[in-house]
Amino acid sequence: MTTTIETLPAAPPRSPFRAWAAERVFRYAVRDLPVTVSFPDGSRLGRGGPELRIVRPSAFFHRLGAQANIGFGEAYMAGDWTADDPAAALTPFAARMATLVPAPLQVLRRWVDARRPAAERNTPDGARANIHRHYDLSNELFEAFLDESMTYSSAWFEPGDDLHAAQLRKIDGILDYAGVRAGSRVLEIGTGWGALAIRAAQRGATVTSLTISVEQRRLAEERAAAAGVADRVTVSLTDYRDAGGTYDAVVSVEMIEAVGEEFWPAYFATLARVLAPGGRVGLQAITMPHDRLMVTRRSHNWIQKYIFPGGVLLSVPVIEEQAARVGLRVVRRRSLGPHYARTLAQWRARFEAAREQVAALGFDEVFGRLWEFYLAYSEAGFRSRYLDVWQFGLRAAG
């Protein structure tokens, strides 16, 4: 079998005027960037730096003109452009994300930005479909590039840490924020492949972990049994909105990005509803600048189309506001943004080293380039500090 999350258009949409306009905007945008954009005719743009090679200029600019951000990623998938180090080449673009397009042309956003498909709304049924498209691709795919804990979120590195040690440090940081210890009743929203639930159970806690991924549940249960904590870990195929019970600690690591703006109130209401008096919440969330969130919140980008359908990043002010509405307040926080850049760089290196293994699983070359771009694009976001990731400790206000 050959597998991709979405089907790449066989040929770029043809619109000579839009392609012409896209080329003008692109040339204007890169003229002062610390990159080298090279063309087949030997011409170059930029102030010098990591090289981005345009292989098929006509196809590249037609894709860019058709769907801007989405087209840029699709052009990489199709091989219309390439780079020896795509993360390095993309970082200068990410650093100037807000100003790449000249201010007078920002008003044209509504004509070039794709709109979010209604089918990707994170209703209970929609959320299951969205999660299935990514997390149920293949457990073996994720095993190919994650560390042995199968942790798919930012690590927290200290000197001497390898990726595995850094992932356990991150998990311990969240458990500490939530006050998890022997005897704690813990609710985890978003199981992943069970690493956090296992770590909490090894502290002596009893864990109920919620997931809506069938594949993740299966492997998480197997891993909990192998770790000898199956009696203290229950993995439930349950939507967070249906969570029941009362818990001393609620933990959730990089799941909130999949909730969607429409359902942020329901997510935070769940945290408050299930938290016992005096309980704590440990939350890890990827964030973007608040002003950029306000501008892009209704747009549909490449990551949403090909990687995380229905996903929307939050900002720190939004997290604080949503928490306050349900009587919670942030009492502790730490930023791990640079650590995520390092995590993604290691994942990308591991994925590239495992390309033959990935192909043997049935994933085609376009899928390989898709994931290469996804990991590099994300790394660039954190390297430039356009993106950040935070660990939050929350408690009831008052």
Rank of each mutant, 00 (worst) to 15 (best):
L45N: 12
T234M: 08
A359Y: 06
M294I: 14
A345C: 01
G245C: 09
K305N: 06
E372F: 12
I189M: 08
A144W: 12
Q322P: 07
A114C: 11
E140G: 11
V180I: 05
W81K: 00
P86M: 06
G65E: 13
A129N: 07
R133D: 15
T99G: 02
V233F: 07
V214Q: 11
L8S: 04
L361V: 05
R181P: 04
V330W: 12
N122M: 04
F61H: 14
E356S: 13
I70A: 02
L370V: 09
W156F: 15
E365S: 14
L344R: 02
V180N: 00
H339G: 01
G71R: 00
Q322G: 00
A87T: 03
Y135D: 15
A376W: 04
A380P: 06
F61R: 06
E352V: 15
G245N: 08
N301G: 11
A165F: 06
L275N: 01
T4I: 13
I54Y: 09
A19F: 07
A224C: 02
A103H: 00
L394W: 03
V253L: 12
S149V: 14
R56H: 15
L64N: 11
R185A: 15
R24Q: 13
R232Q: 15
Q167I: 05
I5K: 00
A197I: 08
L100W: 05
M288E: 15
A103W: 10
V25Q: 01
W302D: 09
A10S: 14
E222N: 02
D41H: 11
L219M: 08
A269F: 03
V358G: 05
P12M: 05
L271T: 00
E372W: 09
S184G: 05
S149Q: 12
R110A: 15
D32L: 06
A359G: 03
A354C: 02
E257M: 01
Q304L: 10
D172C: 02
A166V: 02
R329P: 02
E352F: 08
L344A: 11
T7W: 01
L237V: 08
V112I: 14
T4D: 04
W371G: 05
A243T: 11
